[in-house]
Design a protein around this nucleic acid. Structure first.
Lengths: 144, 144
DNA sequence: TTCTATGCAAATGGTTTGCAGTCTA
DNA sequence: TAGACTGCAAACCATTTGCATAGAA
């Protein structure tokens, strides 16, 4: 039997959720899959001629609800999106090349709960994003 | 001698920074000071008749640069602002009543650095916001 | 008296909505 | 065939910009 691709997995998620697997949705998933580790709504729109702006945003929202797309809050405050990685996790974003990588950590979850407790809150969610320079960018010498 | 009020402190910060202490700025500071522990640009605008929309946003931006106003990223993704509390810190936001409280923690800073290291990044900043229910809201029984 | 800062209104950028028509299940 | 989904365009919302004028220093 042929191996399950990312696309198969994504399409299955949609079907399983009771939503319809339409042509635009399939096309958008392919586009997102091809856009790399993070992309904006505009990038998706530009790369999907024939698909309407509203559909891009509606699909993006649906995918977030289904947990197959997540938001990345950028350094400057803007938002980008990212495919895959269901489940709770955080991002490290390279402020130079924009590379994003995921991480999850029990330590963070524990600490967050503890900090909430200290301030009298019962924490039920949180956002954490890290910004810095990735290994590759740090290794690149500035030669000019 | 009379004690230094929050307003004095804020006004001094503006003057020290080389910017002018104008009437609209003074008015906006007063308004923000009166709006509680978090407010939106719209709230400030609505509470400052006679002051233009652009001035509200320009002032908000200046205050952020001076470090006397900071952004609070809300649960839903929107942004609010908050007076005071210079220096690096995080927020705990009550999703029921909107109350915000600040905290800073060496543990978080250390952990963030460590997590960055593990992913090969050199972290130079991060965002962390906690969401939950504050003590007061938790204590309030739902009676209907 | 200079030049920063303002108010207004129009422009912007990103996202959402209304609706008549399309296409999946 | 029903109704979920789409494209289009217009609406929306928050923030920014251009410009002539007002007002701190």
């Amino acid at each position: 039997m042929s191996p399950m691709t990312t696309m198969d997995l994504l399409e299955r998620t949609i079907v399983r959720s009771g939503h319809r697997l339409t042509t635009p949705r399939r096309r958008l998933l392919e586009v997102m899959d091809g856009l790399g580790d993070r992309f904006t709504a505009d990038q998706v729109l530009a790369a999907s001629p024939g698909v309407g702006r509203a559909t891009v945003f509606r699909t993006l929202r649906l995918m977030q609800e289904l947990g197959v797309v997540c938001q990345v809050v950028l350094d400057g405050g803007g938002v980008a999106y990212r495919l895959g990685s269901g489940g709770h996790h955080h991002h490290v974003v390279c402020s130079e090349c924009g590379a994003v990588s995921d991480f999850a950590s029990h330590d963070i979850e524990d600490l967050v709960a503890e900090l909430g407790r200290r301030s009298g809150f019962e924490i039920d969610s949180h956002r954490l994003e890290l910004y810095g320079r990735c290994q590759r960018c740090r290794a690149t010498l500035i030669l000019d």
